[in-house]
Design a protein around this nucleic acid. Sequence first.
DNA 1: GATGAATGAGAATTCATTCAT
DNA 2: TATGAATGAATTCTCATTCAT
Lengths: 210, 210, 210, 210
Amino acid sequence: MVRKNEFITVAEELFLETGFENTSIDDIVKRMDVAKGLFYHYFDTKEDLLTAIVERLLDEIKSSIELAMEKKGLTAIERFKELTPSNSGISDRSKMIVSLFHKERNQAFHHLVEERASEFLIPAVERIIRQGVDEGIFQTKYPRETAIAWMTMLGSVGKSAPNEPTPEQLLQMNAARLELSERMLGAKPGTLDELLRRPFSGVSDKACQR
Amino acid sequence: MVRKNEFITVAEELFLETGFENTSIDDIVKRMDVAKGLFYHYFDTKEDLLTAIVERLLDEIKSSIELAMEKKGLTAIERFKELTPSNSGISDRSKMIVSLFHKERNQAFHHLVEERASEFLIPAVERIIRQGVDEGIFQTKYPRETAIAWMTMLGSVGKSAPNEPTPEQLLQMNAARLELSERMLGAKPGTLDELLRRPFSGVSDKACQR
Amino acid sequence: MVRKNEFITVAEELFLETGFENTSIDDIVKRMDVAKGLFYHYFDTKEDLLTAIVERLLDEIKSSIELAMEKKGLTAIERFKELTPSNSGISDRSKMIVSLFHKERNQAFHHLVEERASEFLIPAVERIIRQGVDEGIFQTKYPRETAIAWMTMLGSVGKSAPNEPTPEQLLQMNAARLELSERMLGAKPGTLDELLRRPFSGVSDKACQR
Amino acid sequence: MVRKNEFITVAEELFLETGFENTSIDDIVKRMDVAKGLFYHYFDTKEDLLTAIVERLLDEIKSSIELAMEKKGLTAIERFKELTPSNSGISDRSKMIVSLFHKERNQAFHHLVEERASEFLIPAVERIIRQGVDEGIFQTKYPRETAIAWMTMLGSVGKSAPNEPTPEQLLQMNAARLELSERMLGAKPGTLDELLRRPFSGVSDKACQR
DNA sequence: GATGAATGAGAATTCATTCAT
DNA sequence: TATGAATGAATTCTCATTCAT
C-alpha cells in the first residue's frame, strides 16, 4: 500500500511536469528506481493509474472541504478563509487542484480532475455564497454560476501579467482580483480585504503562469 | 495550396475531436484518402501542421478583430457587438477560438492558440473597456485584468449547466452572464442587455460543454 | 548481458556483410528471431549499437596488443610475431580489424574503427619499429610514418590478385609483401622471412578481396 | 546533355560531401533548383546516376592516363611526373580519384571507382615501374604488387599527421614519403627527389585527412 | 512483492519512383 | 524538356503490456 502510494505520488509529479501522454511507464519506474513489472503488480493499465491519482486527490480535497464546511458558527467570509489552502488542513499537494483548474498542460488529467472536483469544490463555494447572501454581505441571484465564474476568475487574472511579474504588477493583479471579487459576489468594497490580502496567491499566480 | 489547406482543415477537425497526441498522421491521410507521403510533401513534421493550423486560425481572428476595431464612430457596446462572432464576418470555424480558450482537451493546440490569440483578442477587449470607461458606461480601474477575467467568465459560466441544458437553464445562464458582466465591467444594470441577449452563446455553451 | 552481446555479434556480422546503412533493425531482429522491441531494450539507437560493436572490438584489440607489448625480453621481430593475430590470443573475430583497415564497404563502421584502432595498433607498431632500429635490424628515420604505411601496405597488396587467387599468385603476393616489408623497414633481406612466412595472411587476403 | 551533365556534377559534389546513401534525389534537385521529375527524365534510378558519375570520372582519368602513357621518349621518372595531376592535363575534379583511394566516406561510390580505376591507373603505374626497372633506376621483382602498394602508401602516410599539420609535420611527411618510395621502388636515394618534392601533395594530404 | 527480459502494434518520418500535365 | 503532386514501402523508434522467475 505504501508502495502503491509511492507510484501515485511519483506519477502525479511526472504527469504534472510532462503531461499524461508524454510520460511513459518507463519514466515512472526509472524515477522510482524499481522494475517495470512492479508497476503492473499494482495497476492494470496506465489509465488505471490516472484514475488512482485523481481518486486520491479528490479524497483529499473532499475531506478537507467537508472539514471546512462542517465547522459550526462560521461566517461566509470565515468559511472561505477556511477553504483557502493555506488555512485549511488541505495537503500541500492538493493545493494544486485549484491551479489545475487553469492548467492547460494536459488533457486527460485535467479533464478528469476538473470534472470530478467540481462535484465538491464548486458546490461548497456555492453554499458559502448562499450563506453570504443570507448574511447580507453578498448579493447575487445566481450563486451557482457565480461560484464557478468566481473560481475561474481568480485563476485567470494571473495570466494578465508576464511570467516574471514585478511586485507592482502583483499588487495590481491582487487589487484587480479584489475589485472583481467584490463586484461578482455583490459585496461592499473592502469586505473581502482580509480574505484576498494574499488570496490563493501561492497557488494561482505561480502555478497559473504556465 | 488547395491540397495543403485541405490538410489543415481535416487536421483541425481531428485535433479538435481527438486531441493532437491522439491523432496520427495515418488518421489524417486516411480521412483524406491520400497516401501518407503526401502529408510530408506539404509539411515537415506533425508539429509543423499544428503551427499551420494555428496560423490560419489566428489570421482569421486577427483580421476580423481588426475589421471590428477599425470602424469609426462606434460606442463601446456597439464595438463589442461588432466583435461578437455572430455579428461579425468571422468565419464559423474560427468562432471556436473563444471556446478553445477553455478547452483543455489538448495541450499543445490550446496552449499555442491561447498564447497567440491573446495578442489580439485581449488587447482589443481591453481597448473597448477603456473606451467604455471614457464614455462613462463602464467603470473600472483594471481594464487589462478585467478584460481577461471577463472573457474567461463568459466561457466558464457555460460549465455550470449539464451537458444538455433545458431552456430554463439556458435562460438562467444567460441572466447570470449578464449580471456578472455588468458587475465586472462596472456597468449599470441593463446596459448590456442588448449585447448579451444571445451573446457569444452559440460559441461558449455548446463548445465549452466538452 | 549475454543477449546484448548476441545483438552485437549478429549486428557485426550483418554490418560487415551488407554495410551499416543497408542493415535495418528488422534484419537484425529477424536473424535473431526476437521482437524488434527487444533491440531497444538494450540499445537506445542504431548508432548506439555501432558504438557498442566498435567498443567491444577495440577492447579485444587493445588488450591483446597490451598483452603482446608487455612481454619482457622479446626482440622486435618476436614482438611483431606476438602481435600477429594467429600467434597471439586475439579472438578470431577481431582479426578482422586489420582487414577493416582496408575495407571500404561501409563508412561509419570503418571510420570509427580505423580512427580508434590507430590509437592502439599504430603506436604499438611504431614502438616495435623503434625497438628494431635500436636493435640494429631495422633502419629508418621515420618510424611513425613507416608504421602506418607498412600496416596499410600489408593489406593493400592483397588487392593485386584476383578474387580467387591461384596458389602461385598467393606465393607471389607473399614474396612481394616480404620484399616490400624489408625495404620499408630497412631490414636486411631474409630478416623477416620467419615473420611473414604466412603472415597476417588469413586476414588480409580473404578479407580484403571484397 | 548539358543538363544531364549538371546532374552528374551536382550529384558528385553531394555524394562526396555526404555520401551516396545520405544524399536524396531531393537534395540534388533542390541544389539545382529544378523539379524532381526532371531527374527521372535523365536517369532511371539513383543507382544509374552513380554509374554515370563513375563513368565520366573514369573517362577523364583514362584519357589523361593514356595521354601521359602515349608520349614517346620519356624516362620512367618523367612519365611519373606526367601522371601527376598537377602536371598532366587531368581535370581538377578528377584529381579526387587519387584521394578517393583513401576516402572512407562512402561505400558504393568508393568501391565502384576504386575497382574500375585500378583497371587504368595501377596498370599504368606498373608499366612505368617496369620501364624504370629496365632503365636501371628501379629495382624490384614485383612491379604489379609494388604499384598498388606504392599508390596506397602515398595516401596513407598523410594519416600519420593531425588534421591541421604544422609545416614541420608536412616536411617530415614528405621526407618519409620520399624515403619509403625510394625503398619500395628500389631506387637510389635522391632519385625521386624531383618527383616527390611536392608530390601528389595537393591531393593526398588535404584530401586524405578526412 | 519484485525483477527485467520479451513482445508487438503502431507512431513519425524518409525517399525512390511514377505520372499526368 | 520540365513540373510537382502523389504514391507507398521501408525505416527508426516508442511504449503499454505480459510473463517466467
